[in-house]
Write a protein that binds this DNA or RNA. Structure first.
Length: 495
RNA sequence: CGGGGCAUAGCGCAGUCUGGUAGCGCGUCUGGUUUGGGACCAGAAGGUCGCAGGUUCGAAUCCUGCUGCCCCGACCA
């Protein structure tokens, strides 16, 4: 399915941290309902920023930490998400996001939205349930197979839980758009999808229900479609970079349509599902800034060219001979996880579904389309795969559920309680997202919890430091710590 | 869909071979002592042993069927 552009075929192999080895398919991204949360670190539009509480006291939060790992979890991200109380499995491949996980999902969605919007795409929201008739028009109702969850309503009408939305968006487009003057157009939404995998596995990495951001572009001709494709290409580079990830676009199977306009965006993670091969230079290529001009056709093309000039392929597209031509000191073979997939498929749907526009020269012609997917729910897991250590998750600041954790090392003592309270209020007042660990637990337990849930900064407030008027600030990424006055900590963390 | 495994307290497990009325660790609750890397003592609560049949005086344990979940493979335009 084109929609499939959004995912991919796959063949990966997942290496769990210690021993597990698993294979995974690539190709999907799962998305979900979204609430949007403004990322305090970004410029750009902010959406519904007040829907989410900035700060929380752990005593009033819902954070079911597990000390031991449920045995069904094999890969790191799955284990850590369960232990950190981020999600819960409700059925094979179907998960509930608990508050902590939901916050991360929202952060991811917010970044995806901002970058989609920046590139000129427009958000709408299509339903999860679709009519089979729509799919009969494109011929995919019969072609899709058992992966599609088919449902009958009370009137015995054939319905389905959407695995993707090409048909629906094409139907919407053709209902309103008649002229080339309304092009180009790129519409996207972030919605739950369902693909009834034969074998769901690896937690969020390959579930059946998943949140997906899928965008669909419409252009008069291939040249226009290429520019639309390039816009998404650049938006994707920015999106993943903002999440603290190094993503590398890799040429993907273009399928029966032909052409070479399809790329998978792979992030490197030692426990990644698939084997990837690429030129080392990709690791240092600069990502376009927020001021990139998306209307600059030549400029965008130059950026895309730079990002596709060198060798980069997943194992199933790997060409050993071509890779051998890369200087040996520049050869990188690693593991990766597919987090996005963009695809140009021309008139595959517009033709059978008659999505045509007048050309200005008399007559109509089917529009050229492309579809572009990102899997926010899969990204939650992918980011953990790419960023964790023995103690737990290490969130990149942009997607962290909270920026700071305040650990009261002696709950109930007047001085530490007062210092924590003051710091909590001051940070919150400055808009910093804080989780105040105010439960009466031993210091060690608090350290373990904070490390596990991966909050970027920990402020430890204990009698020892307070005696000198100081608190200790620890950075989760490298474990470095420094004693400083509460005022200095406030300064450091609120900037 | 083929192959393998698991299902006993919230989580991790023992008990099943050799039927006799369910146990350990963690967690939870009470009280006390503790308090800078997952404390200690004392006490307590918590289980249709996945479901349904069968064998038996008696089934977590043996037999049959079913369901769910996990892993490997196939699949993943």
């Amino acid at each position: 399915m084109a929609g499939c552009g959004l995912h991919a075929r796959s063949t990966p192999r997942c290496r769990a941290p210690q021993r597990t080895v698993a294979r995974t398919g690539r190709g999907r991204f799962r998305p979900g309902p979204c609430v949007f949360l403004a990322d305090p670190l970004t410029r750009g539009p902010v959406f519904f920023s007040n829907l989410q509480r900035k700060s929380m006291r752990l005593s009033r939060f819902f954070l079911p930490i597990l000390r031991e790992t449920p045995k069904e979890a094999e890969i790191v991200s799955h284990r850590l998400m369960l232990r950190a109380g981020m999600m819960r499995q409700e059925a094979a491949g179907i998960y509930a996001f608990l508050p902590l996980g939901f916050r991360v999902l929202q952060k991811i969605c917010a970044i995806v939205r901002e970058e989609q919007n920046r590139s000129g795409a427009i958000e709408l929201l299509m339903p999860t349930i679709q009519s089979a008739d729509l799919w009969r028009e494109s011929g995919r109702y019969e072609a899709y197979g058992k992966e599609m969850l088919r449902i009958k309503d009370r009137h015995e009408r054939d319905m389905l839980y959407g695995p993707t939305n090409e048909e629906m968006i094409t139907e919407i487009f053709r209902s309103y758009v008649r002229s080339y003057k309304d092009l180009p157009l790129n519409l996207y939404h972030i919605q739950w999808k369902f693909r009834d995998e034969v074998r769901p596995r690896f937690g969020l990495m390959r579930g059946r229900e998943f949140l997906m951001k899928d965008a669909y572009s419409f252009d008069l001709d291939q040249a226009g479609a290429t520019h639309s494709y390039n816009k998404m290409f650049v938006a994707y580079l920015r999106t993943f970079a903002r999440m603290g990830l190094k993503s590398i676009p890799m040429r993907a199977e273009s399928g029966p349509i032909g052409g070479n306009l399809s790329h998978e965006f792979i992030i490197l993670a030692s426990t990644g599902e698939s084997e990837v091969f690429c030129h080392k230079d990709y690791l240092d290529l600069p990502v376009p800034g927020a001021d990139v001009n998306f209307d600059d056709v030549a400029g965008l093309q130059a950026t895309v060219d730079a990002w596709t000039a060198q060798y980069a392929a997943t194992s199933d597209m790997h060409d050993a001979a071509a890779f051998a031509k890369v200087p040996s000191d520049k050869q990188v073979s690693a593991r990766g996880i597919e987090v996005g997939h963009i695809f140009y498929f021309g008139t595959k749907y517009s033709e059978p579904m008659k999505a045509v526009v007048s050309t200005g020269e008399g007559g109509d012609k089917p529009v050229h389309m492309g579809s572009y997917g990102i899997g926010p729910s899969r990204l939650v897991a992918a980011i953990i795969e790419a960023s964790h250590d023995e103690a737990g998750i290490v969130w990149p600041e942009a997607v962290a559920p909270f920026k700071v954790a305040i650990l009261n090392l002696k709950q109930g003592a007047a001085d530490t309680d007062a210092a924590c309270e003051q710091l909590y209020r001051a940070l919150t007042a400055k808009g910093v997202e804080v989780l105040y660990h105010d439960i009466d637990e031993r210091a060690g337990a608090k350290f373990a919890t904070a490390d596990l849930i991966g909050v970027p900064w920990q402020v430890m407030v204990g009698p020892r430091g307070l005696a000198e008027g100081k608190v200790e600030v620890k950075k989760r990424t490298d474990g470095s710590r420094e004693m400083m006055t509460p005022a200095a900590a406030l300064d450091l963390l609120a900037k």
